[in-house]
């Protein structure tokens, strides 16, 4: 699966980073960077958690 970010919708709340710190992070300007967009196994669980907690629904998972 691949993590898709709707960038205009992202406001940098950062809950995804807490849920999946190895997959994404906010940079020094508060912009979200997806470090590992393609996920499977344990990473997929973390990615799903990140998608779930995004307060503005800016993240989704798509078939790679």
């Amino acid at each position: 699966m691949r993590i898709h970010l709707d960038r205009p919708r992202c406001e940098g709340h950062g809950l995804c980073e807490e849920a999946a710190p190895t997959l994404m992070h906010l940079d020094d300007d508060g912009e979200l960077l997806i470090d590992a967009p393609d996920v499977d196994g344990a990473d997929l669980d973390a990615a799903q958690a990140a998608v779930r907690v995004c307060p503005v629904a800016a993240l989704r998972l798509e078939a790679a």
Binding site: P8, E11, G12, H13, G14, L26, D29, G30, E31
Partner: peptide, 10 residues
């Protein structure tokens, strides 16, 4: 976007 620009965590 106009509303939230000044309210984002950054």
């Amino acid at each position: 976007a106009t509303l939230s620009e000044n309210l984002t965590p950054r």
